[in-house]
């Protein structure tokens, strides 16, 4: 049976490992890249090379150029409030609403036993430590209203209670439909959900 040349197969295989990209899409993307000129590929290579220097903020675990990200380095924000999100994309989404002036904490995932992600695999312990240090009064859990988002919220709330502190935890209000993904919410809805967040 005929198949693509092995070099192309390797590319397809690598691209199909990316999240949200199935085998068909991987083929399309690969062939698209193949059709481009050398300049395009060199440029692409350079971009990939450059992101090697990126890492994660040691305070909030957002993507960052240096050990501390721009948000954590900004002293003018409200230190009493931390918004807890699943990933760096959520920071961008929430920043765009213009409704939030506190700091962030990026969990780098959600609790998901079926995928072998347990609380210890996330940045939850670091969050609890942060709360002990900073003058934090409120945590907004801006996590999806999904099974995994709910469970993660419950783990964080439970760990906070064990720790005996006076931090209020709130969860983004509805307005966000059940089972919905905050990344796809429009800015108005998301902005509203931040303002109407509920204590959990």
């Amino acid at each position: 049976m005929y198949n693509y040349p092995q070099k192309l197969q390797k590319l397809i295989n690598e691209i199909s490992k990316l999240p949200g990209i199935g085998p068909k899409m991987a083929e399309r993307v690969s062939i698209h890249i193949l059709k481009k000129d050398v300049e395009y590929i060199d440029n692409f290579k350079e971009i990939l090379e450059e992101i090697k220097t990126l890492g994660f903020c040691t305070i909030c675990f957002n993507v960052s150029e240096g050990p501390v990200c721009d948000i954590c380095a900004d002293d003018g924000r409200d230190k009493s409030i931390i918004c807890v999100v699943e990933s760096s994309e959520d920071v961008i989404t929430i920043e765009r609403t213009g409704k939030f002036r506190g700091y962030y904490h990026i969990l780098q995932g959600l609790v998901n036993p079926l995928n072998n992600v347990l609380p210890e695999n996330l940045r939850i312990a670091e969050l609890i430590k942060r709360i002990g240090k900073d003058p934090v009064k409120e945590l907004i859990l801006a996590l999806n209203h999904t099974v995994e988002g709910d469970a993660t919220s419950m783990f964080i709330s439970a760990m906070l209670h064990d720790d005996d502190n006076n931090v209020i935890t709130t969860r983004l209000a509805k307005g966000l439909p059940m089972g919905s993904d905050i990344r796809y919410a429009d800015e108005i809805t998301l902005g509203q959900a931040i303002l109407e967040r509920k204590q959990v």
């Binding site: 998901n112 036993p113 079926l114 999904t146 099974v147 709910d150 469970a151 059940m178 089972g179």
Partner: peptide, 18 residues
């Protein structure tokens, strides 16, 4: 809401069983 809750519940049971 029932449809959503049922979907969530069955997934939660699957997570818990695992």
């Amino acid at each position: 809401e029932y449809f959503e809750t049922l979907g969530k519940y069955l997934k939660e049971v699957a997570h818990r069983n695992y």
